[in-house]
């Protein structure tokens, strides 16, 4: 049988249908400096221009043979749309993602999400970038993502207000999370309408190194369920940090796949969620593709270990760090394809 296109491979994987080889993709940022340089762009510019955003995303994926193309790259789009000012670090020599240095809302009482959020700030720009990717790179699976409500609140308010509020002002925290949840539903639906083939909900700041499994069940899970139920499949739920204590709850939120980072013990997760659930992750985005001292052989060994951890697709634990070593990145993708030629727990092979 002929080789599948990257998009076919990813979409079949999400449906748990057999694929030709191990998918290598992400639902989080995967823009890379070699592509940005080849296009003659500068890193701070790609966040504020739809064409540069789309083209740098496509070029990154094609240059290294990824199965997906993903926009946007930073987590400040919604916060900026609501009225906060972003720092782009245009004078810095380093690769720095946009941030919100000062938040205009100082308390949960001030949280008021504009109804026309998708018309504000860079939201139309992200939609435009998705449309360009869809048109220019039809062979790639088009991914979009948004933060989950708890993590998003950290872009809108000081996070310690919410963290302490979990105990001291529970009703107020719930009300705030609900407002943000409704916004996230709307943003995700707009991204899907713009052509996203799959979407990732990144509730990054809710691992058990931050909040308890009980708080997760009580405050986070209901909102994960609500958001995921409002979006079309395929959809992925990603959480950073320690997730082994909550992996079963993550798998019970209505996502088609769960994604974890390097702090997760994959084999333990697989044992807990069984072979019918898609598990994505979780290679180290600094140690394997970027660290100057990491040899190609070490990067290859890292990916083999990742596959032995029973993932259904090799997918980074976080955004790919843009400043990769090209030889390591190529070896990583090649190893995923070759070493992943055997079926994974939830996905067979053609």
């Amino acid at each position: 049988m002929a080789e599948l296109t990257p998009k076919e491979r990813v979409m079949r994987m999400f449906r748990k249908e057999p694929v030709d080889m191990m998918p290598f993709f992400s639902g989080m940022g995967m823009v890379l400096m070699p592509a940005i340089k080849e296009l003659g762009y500068q890193f701070p510019k790609v966040h504020t221009n739809a064409e540069m955003m789309a083209k740098s995303a496509i070029a990154s994926s094609r240059m290294f043979g990824f199965d997906s193309v993903v926009v946007p790259y930073d987590m400040t789009c919604e916060s900026e749309a609501i009225g906060n000012t972003i720092s782009l670090y245009e004078d810095s020599m380093d690769i720095l993602y946009p941030t919100i240095p000062e938040k205009m809302w100082k308390s949960m009482d001030e949280v008021q999400i504009p109804k026309n959020i998708m018309e504000l700030g860079r939201m139309p720009l992200v939609v435009e970038a998705l449309k360009i990717c869809k048109k220019e790179a039809p062979e790639l699976a088009l991914g979009a993502w948004t933060l989950g409500p708890f993590t998003m609140s950290g872009q809108l308010l000081e996070l310690d207000i919410l963290l302490k509020g979990v105990f001291k002002q529970k009703a107020k925290v719930e009300e705030t999370l609900d407002k943000i949840t409704d916004m996230i539903i709307k943003v995700g639906q707009a991204y899907q309408a713009a052509g996203a083939d799959f979407i990732t909900l990144r509730e990054m700041g809710t691992g058990t190194d931050l909040i308890s499994p009980r708080t997760w069940k009580d405050m986070i899970q209901p909102r994960m369920r609500k958001i995921l139920a409002a979006w079309k499949s395929p959809k992925v739920l990603h959480i950073c940090g320690a997730t082994n204590l909550i992996i079963e709850m993550m798998a019970d939120c209505g996502a088609d796949a769960v994604s974890v980072d390097i702090k997760n013990c994959l084999n333990e997760s697989r044992e807990k969620i069984g072979n019918d659930n898609l598990l994505l992750g979780n290679f180290d985005v600094f140690a394997l593709p970027c660290k100057a001292e990491t040899t190609v052989e070490e990067a290859v060994a890292g990916i083999k270990q990742n596959i032995d951890g029973t993932v259904d697709a090799v997918w980074p634990g976080c955004d790919l760090w843009p400043d990769i070593k090209e030889e390591n990145m190529r070896a990583i993708v090649k190893t995923a394809r070759e070493y992943g030629s055997k079926p994974s727990p939830a996905v067979g092979r053609l």
Partner: peptide, 14 residues
């Protein structure tokens, strides 16, 4: 021991 998490620790710090 996973009995306290960051919200509790922040309140203890206060």
């Amino acid at each position: 021991r996973n009995e306290y998490f960051v919200p509790e620790v922040l309140m203890c710090a206060d």
